[in-house]
Write a protein that binds this DNA or RNA. Structure first.
Lengths: 201, 201
DNA sequence: CAATTCCCTTCACATTTGCGAATAAATATA
DNA sequence: TATATTTATTCGCAAATGTGAAGGGAATTG
């Protein structure tokens, strides 16, 4: 339950797919909350249930999987810029959220983060009450699907150097925002290998 | 426009997510068609637009990407068994379908295939006319998302041998249905490497 | 300002995986 | 049945990638 104006960044994003009417906007404002998270805060722990979605308003976040040896593998980055699509706006383990499974990733803030928080109960209520919201969710799911399709297809069909070149072309803002250490595992390679690829043009 | 009874395999699958009412079932039967495709038929060519979805009723299919050297990399398998979830039932390049992009994969039949054919126009019409259908599509998109999430996460975080063990555990029916040559590239490895992994238990 | 931490790079070496060729078994075809 | 074709395996070597160690520079901290 927050003022409608506070949700404006969220409505702006919704408008990429559907135009929310006044009732829907009010309904959303009534069923979310505003949170400020400090730097280096853990939003979600590996293995824990995930019943929340954070819509990033400002700040940086990162999710990661911890492998058998204790190394972390970056799964995704979270931030809100004009370029960013759904891929980077919603900090959650959406698969765990949908299936009520233990989360396979942890999510941490890298800076102070301002976000809108939606619980699973709130999301389900919004889908139930607003056709516009349900339609938007369908399109959001399509968008999330396409991002994952691209990720899987890239990992399956492209070599490490080509995956890096693709990132330079399509997500070069990530290079300015996050360390190469994080970028490397996001691409599925070791930091030293990324360094090697970068030095060979 | 086909008899409602003919759509029964499709309704059966829908029931995993929603219960279609009589009107929706009639609407679907009125906006699809039944096709039989011969063995080794190409449903979709790489680079072509994808404006169709085939719901597999019987038979086997396979999609693949052709890399720079001419080798094919298996993207997915298509068939209809009691175990199969959405992952294997819909033969289409769903990303290209949604975005009106050139298709990144080709799809071929490996045996004679019986399928229900939905054009993009028909799908959009069904979404427009039936709330049940739109709700089902939202859940189908969720399911497609989760399958892609799993594919990307597996490719990013697991080594080749572990990916094979995961397939043995979770999709062992694929081993009975498709050649190791296809399975190997589906796992992102060379056929000889799969052979090596299998020989080491 | 000095000390520390973090990030990036490079090197040498180990491991994994890819690739071409050869072979044999299984299957399909004539 | 005889002959192709496909499929699976193995081998040796090449290429790609991972790993640990070392060092330098930038940024942060006291």
């Amino acid at each position: 339950m927050i003022p409608v104006e506070t949700c404006e960044p969220f409505f702006n994003y919704m408008r990429k797919f559907v135009e929310p009417d006044t009732d829907t906007m009010q309904l959303i404002a009534d069923h979310t909350s505003e949170v400020t998270l400090p730097e280096k805060h853990l939003l979600l722990l590996e293995g824990n249930p995930c019943d929340k979605i954070y819509f990033i308003v400002s700040g940086l976040g990162r999710s990661y999987y911890t492998d058998f040896s204790g190394k972390t593998i970056t799964w995704n980055f979270y931030f809100n810029t004009p370029e960013s699509i759904s891929k980077n706006l919603f900090a959650t383990d959406y698969r765990a959220f949908l299936q009520n499974n233990p989360s396979s990733i942890a999510i941490e803030t890298l800076t102070e983060v301002n976000a809108l928080l939606f619980t699973k109960t709130q999301v389900n209520y919004l889908i139930e009450k607003s056709l516009i919201y349900e339609r938007w969710m369908r399109k959001l799911n399509e968008s999330a699907f396409m991002n994952m399709y691209d990720r899987a297809f890239t990992l399956l069909t492209m070599a490490a150097a080509d995956r890096y070149q693709k990132l330079v072309k399509e997500e070069s803002h990530l290079l300015q925002m996050f360390s190469n250490y994080y970028i490397a595992s996001y691409l599925g390679i070791a930091p030293q290998s990324l360094s090697r690829i970068r030095s060979q043009h």
